[in-house]
Design a protein around this nucleic acid. Structure first.
Lengths: 206, 206
DNA sequence: TTAGATTCTGGCCATGCAGTCAAAAAATGA
DNA sequence: TCATTTTTTGACTGCATGGCCAGAATCTAA
């Protein structure tokens, strides 16, 4: 058996990689449809049409599986978002592109978006401590913070606490998605445009 | 036995009322300290120093207990917040008082604040549907929306989508609290002042 | 004092969970 | 072909949960 070896030792076999991808996809689908608390390994296995033991064979445990799901989805979001941000010049335009980019991604990939939200909110270790707590958002906050600071240095943005602005912008985006999930009839892109306006007004000089 | 009767039939006995209050308090304390998923009835009973069966005797089930916790805390928050909002005249002042009022309450009652957040986020019915989902926030959204509309009608506020603003303001407040919970060193009231400024700038006319 | 109602205890039950394992099946390669 | 390795199966373990209940303890009132 070689399932126990991380990418450290040998490379993973083709079939091994395919199974892992299949199981990750089944996990995304299951979590999105029944929510994290009811997405047991048995249920994920059923979604994939395999026996429960296969998951244990290919992943060290549920924790490793969830980690892989998060990495997979995050990479996907970054691939969608980063190019859009790179082509903007001003901080204001980047803020707008950030809000709009996430909304576009969510509209195109609601399953992945819902899954990652579910994992962030619900996944906890044996002691009840969140496995993706405030720490997970930290890199995000830092990059937004850097963006704001540069805009403030150039005089494009007013003086404000960049950390509070970053936390609030991220919260506004998350809430937009949550609201849309609960009320799919609403116009997500219109919400995103309003939200972008809101933050542009919040950061610009008097 | 009379535990099964809601306030409809007879009034509740003195001891009955005292026990219910004690159990609700124990639930608040337990959920705040170990989180909702680990706050089992057995654990809540242990916190209260009583046998598990007592909870079943005085409450129809865990759902009723959680409902009572929510009602208790919500009532408490409203009693703190409403008088402060009532004495303000302009929409701008009310927005500011709302943000600051919640922050003050959280600072004085972190246990209750954390408990209600935990319940909202984690409590789900047997089918996995959130028991306090988007519906729970609806009344809140509506009152903020009304406030904004009045401000817009009087010309004090610019034209914007009041629903998006309400969702975002609430999200900003929730995130402020979550951030403070994760990093208790930070200055909650300073965060609240920044947040209030942010929204005041977002709603005022150009 | 005593009968009846109320309240409490602690053990029990069915359910669902993550993870384990021996054995079966499938793939591999000599 | 056949021995060896990789992969899969499905039953099993141990644990935690919410709810249930028979009997004990306590309280109330006549």
């Amino acid at each position: 058996m070689q399932s126990k070896n991380e990418p450290d030792g040998q490379k993973r076999s083709f079939i091994e990689e395919a199974r892992r991808a299949q199981i990750i996809a089944a996990a995304v689908q299951t979590i999105a449809s029944v929510g994290f608390p009811k997405a047991s390994l048995a249920r994920i296995a059923a979604t994939a049409g395999i026996s429960k033991g296969v998951i244990s064979y290919h992943f060290a445990g549920k924790d490793e599986l969830m980690d892989q799901v998060v990495v997979t989805v995050y990479t996907d979001i970054a691939e969608h978002l980063l190019p859009r941000l790179a082509e903007k010049d001003t901080a204001t335009d980047i803020v707008r592109a950030h809000v709009m980019g996430v909304a576009e991604y969510a509209l195109a990939n609601p399953e992945r978006m819902r899954t990652i939200t579910e994992i962030f909110v619900h996944d906890r270790d044996a002691e009840g401590v969140p496995r993706y707590g405030a720490l997970a958002a930290e890199p995000l906050y830092e990059s937004l913070e850097t963006l704001y600071r540069e805009g403030q240095a150039s005089g494009e943005l007013r003086a404000f606490d960049p950390r509070v602005m970053a936390v609030t912008q991220q919260a506004g985006i998350d809430a937009m998605f949550g609201y849309w999930m609960a009320r799919p009839d609403t116009d997500l892109l219109a919400h995103a445009r309003e939200l972008a306006d809101l933050f542009v007004r919040a950061v610009r000089p008097d």
